[in-house]
Write a protein that binds this DNA or RNA. Structure first.
Lengths: 205, 205, 205, 205
DNA sequence: AATTAACCGAGACGGTACGTCACGTCTTTAA
DNA sequence: TTAAAGACGTGACGTACCGTCTCGGTTAATT
């Protein structure tokens, strides 16, 4: 399912039952654009991806891009959105195990983007909108992790009084800092060790 | 002390004892540029700062900028460098207290930049060099924090086997994620709580 | 009719019968540029005319200039082209009279440019292309004069064996040397006298 | 002998009998500059010759150039001046023969410059001064030719009433037009034929 | 021998214009 | 009603030379 990232998307908008006249939006084109964007971003990095190049690669007129997305950041953000979408949540019963799995997933996701500049690029974009979209995307991605920790705390797997929100953000921050800033993908055992710095107790049941 | 950020800076470079001929680089101009850059970045945000504007504000020819810095990212990075430089390290004896102080300092530093896009902007800039500079800058900033934790572990204030490097990065990641991504400056007690998630013991002495 | 001066001009280029899609080149803008260029060249002289000024005066974006002309020399050359185009040829029957009229026309044309540096400027411009264009333009302008003399020689108004090509070039050279080099516009009777240095005989008829 | 081309030349300037103190202008440097300029102009054409390049080739500081010449046009003009200086005048007694020889010399001179853009370049230069210098140089070169023709007319080798000034200018114009504009060096017999278009009579004596 | 004026090298600086790139908007024709 | 094609305005970029202005060091005539 496609994330709603603020795109004005007539393909899904309600036309009130009234039959739509004229040529319909080409769904292939839409997909082609997103695929082309992903490829280009991975190949060239954010700043070298231009609307021109996306259009060319997707076999689409540049104007068409602007019809469906307000600017480059939006295209890239949506192109990347699927990858950032939560995905199937691990649920093994053990909070610790689930958290590690979740973070490993995040690492894999961000690595898949191929180029660390994507996040920075979208973030640096002129205009508030781009930033907000990406922010929301990441927030959505993180919510399950936070819920997981909250539940774990409730079930007594974690000592009471832990700053759950801050901890989750520190984990994500760790992954982002390593991948986006230092461009060094964290090893799996580092993630494990980081989580294990918290005094988890296995569930009784 | 000024960080070396890769800038070809004849003002500080070693001329091998050979007497320097020719007109000297105007130190006022240099300083004015950095000051102007800091101001503008805080006022307008990264993407609205242009070489043109920097030059105008600093009362300097645009060419002069390109003479000393390869591009905008370099100027901004150097302008921000001092602020990111370690500064006087807190040393109260308590690892926990020092760590908190250190992180608070980082928060204050990044907040001072005025615009979250600065970091992202410099990071997203074309060219490897810019990224590397900023990376090194942050790394330098973090080293003392890491040393602090190492010493703490040695002195037994922290249980053995903690992944110190990852923990430090998770703290920094936390601050960066909050300030740069979500644009919500973390409160002091959140930082405290985050640090306190580790089982510190006060030093015996 | 407008001279082809090597400009890639989609307005006149053959599209092979294939229907042209997309927005059309604004003909007003095109004309405005050429007019502005002529004015500016006359007012300021070649070297003070900049793309910036042309664009401003023509009410056009600077980019548009570069879209249609490779550089300043090309714009100026095309702007001047009409003026240099042959125009209505005098044909009074007398070779001598026609030649004088033709040369007077050339004098007037070059004078109209307003600034002697125009020719020199376009000529001195970087790039082979500019030179060639101007060269062709002048050559086109001269051809009728040469044909005139050829016909005159055939009809016996001139003694046989005269180096017609060289003579024509010497006349043009005279005008150019005076206007462009010495910046002294030749008087009409000087032109007349120059032509009369040749032993013309009036046609019998 | 070196032409005075408006250069403020302390090496030759009158100091009012007062003995000059201090270090003298380095004559080698002066010569090296002119030689370098000639070479570069021939190699690169006028517009690619920069003060920077001249200085480098001559092994001289750029500043030194500006000390002795006001701008590029002046340097080039002086560098070229010797070549344009009259040289040994042919005097065979026959006006026709001398004129042809003189023009052939001019052709050789201008060809030697190596690049047609030199003349155009100096002419197109900003500032009146450059133009005037070159103009004077050419005028000096032409005077003997004009005198020659004047004498010829006096001696009856040419019919009376010929516009001598215009004719000379047309000859020079011919050479310039061919070399500078069309970049086709005129053949010797063309020059001969052009001169022979005038009804010369050999001197009686 | 010391002084001093003029010269020279190296190089930094303000400035003007250039030509390029990408963005986002608008217009025309075809499907 | 879309889409493809493409022209346009806008803003910034980085480059190239220009001509000016210091500096320290060198050379030679004057004292």
């Amino acid at each position: 399912m496609t994330q709603d990232t603020g795109t004005q998307d007539p393909g899904t908008q309600d036309t009130g039952g009234r039959p739509r006249r004229g040529r319909r939006r080409d769904p292939d084109a839409h997909a082609a654009v997103l695929r082309a964007t992903r490829e280009l971003v991975a190949e060239l990095g954010y700043h070298r991806v231009t609307m021109e190049r996306i259009a060319a690669r997707a076999g689409v007129a540049r104007m068409t891009l602007y019809r469906w997305w307000p600017n480059k950041a939006a295209v890239v953000t949506e192109a990347v959105a699927d990858r950032l979408a939560p995905g199937p949540l691990p649920d093994t019963g053990s909070t610790r195990t689930d958290a590690i799995a979740h973070l490993d997933g995040l690492v894999r996701t961000l690595t898949l983007l191929g180029d660390p500049s994507v996040v920075a690029g979208a973030l640096a974009e002129r205009g508030e909108a781009g930033r907000t979209d990406l922010r929301d995307l990441l927030a959505a991605r993180l919510r399950p992790l936070r819920d997981l920790l909250d539940r774990g705390a409730e079930r007594g797997e974690l000592p009471p009084g832990l700053p759950v929100a801050a901890l989750v953000d520190s984990w994500v921050g760790f992954v982002l800092y390593r991948i986006v800033f230092t461009e060094q993908v964290p090893a799996e055992d580092e993630v494990t060790a980081l989580v294990d710095a918290l005094p988890f107790s296995e569930p009784d049941d």
